[in-house]
Nucleic acid binder design. Structure first.
Lengths: 199, 199
DNA sequence: GTCTATAATCTGATAGAC
DNA sequence: GTCTATCAGATTATAGAC
């Protein structure tokens, strides 16, 4: 389908402009010019600018889904639970920090009046469920998952806004994951006795 | 000074409009009307719209400074380190979640072309230093502080964007702080032997 | 599907009278 | 300090020819 290709190109350019000027900080004129048409012609592909944002949201979540799938691919949850969990955590963080604007669209509510359509929200849900599957497999409960996601979200947020392009919080990942696994499944990841004081 | 009162009123209304329409999503006309003048008259108080944003940034950080001061007020760091740390953490989180737009301005870089002035940045630095003082007092190093701030930032971010107005991640605070203190100063906050498996 | 034309409105900002 | 007048341009979106 040629139409689908055009749609994909529009979305790709919308990402490009957002990365350069800030999320959704492009005009229909600007976007149209980028894809080689007048702004008005965009309306035969999308009903409004917010529909383009929704297409970006869908696209971003599809990529997240792919990333999480690829990241857990070489791992066997039952055979190597900690390896799988660490891989998903690292994959998720790399996904976030590698594209701050995408992180902003997917995980923060920052575009006024933007509400994801049911279709794109479903993909977001699917990606989230896949990402936390290794945690569920270890019997971690709702509160544990919330704690885990909060730590990952925090590392991403800090890295993006306080050290963009650097690795200051990326370097904290190992100790963060160790800490989380110690807290959430101590039987799986016991504290090394040598490093702890015995009362 | 009557001039200062007007300036304060402008900033207050800018917050109000941002809370209603999204951060910095107000026009000078709109803001002027709110404070009872034409948009053009605002320019005798601020040189540009971004200067108003900077005044908001300064105001927000001053309030953060006040909050952190008030929160640690009843505590003695040397006598009750964990109590002090818990209080500052809770105070910080309440500060963040109670005003998502303020959180967005203070802790995320989301307004295009906005750069804090040196003066307002200095206040931000002062607030941060005060907030982590109890951690430093416990000898927690740079990486430890980064881990701590990441967890707090994550709890705030998740609470704000995934459960606004609720308390889903607020309820995780106790276990998060316990986990952090266990990890970062085990001598101060030893793991209760009863709940752990002995190898 | 893409175009021209245009609606209808908003934008931040400046000049100068009073 | 506040006003009127205005600049110079932007914005999303629609109508209708081709």
């Amino acid at each position: 389908m040629r139409r689908q290709e055009t749609i994909d190109e529009i979305v790709a350019e919308a990402w490009e402009l957002s990365r350069a000027n800030g999320l959704a900080n492009f005009s229909m004129r600007e976007l149209g010019t980028r894809v080689g048409m007048r702004a008005q012609s965009l309306y035969s592909y999308f009903g409004s600018k917010l529909e383009i944002c929704d297409a970006m949201f869908l696209d971003g979540n599809r990529r997240l889904l792919e990333t999480m799938r690829a990241e857990t691919d070489g791992f066997d949850i039952t055979a190597d639970p900690t390896g799988t969990i660490e891989a998903t955590a690292r994959g998720f963080l790399r996904f976030c920090t590698s594209d701050p604007v995408r992180y902003q669209l997917l995980f923060q509510r920052t575009i006024p009046d933007f509400v994801p359509s049911p279709d794109s929200f479903a993909v977001a849900q699917e990606a989230f469920d896949l990402a936390i599957a290794p945690l569920r497999a270890q019997g971690i409960d709702d509160q544990g998952v919330d704690l885990f996601t909060a730590v990952l979200a925090g590392l991403a947020a800090q890295q993006i806004s306080n050290d963009p392009g650097g690795d200051r919080w990326e370097r904290v990942i190992p100790s963060a994951i160790t800490m989380l696994l110690r807290e959430l499944c101590p039987n799986l990841y016991p504290t090394p006795p040598s490093t702890r004081s015995q009362p």
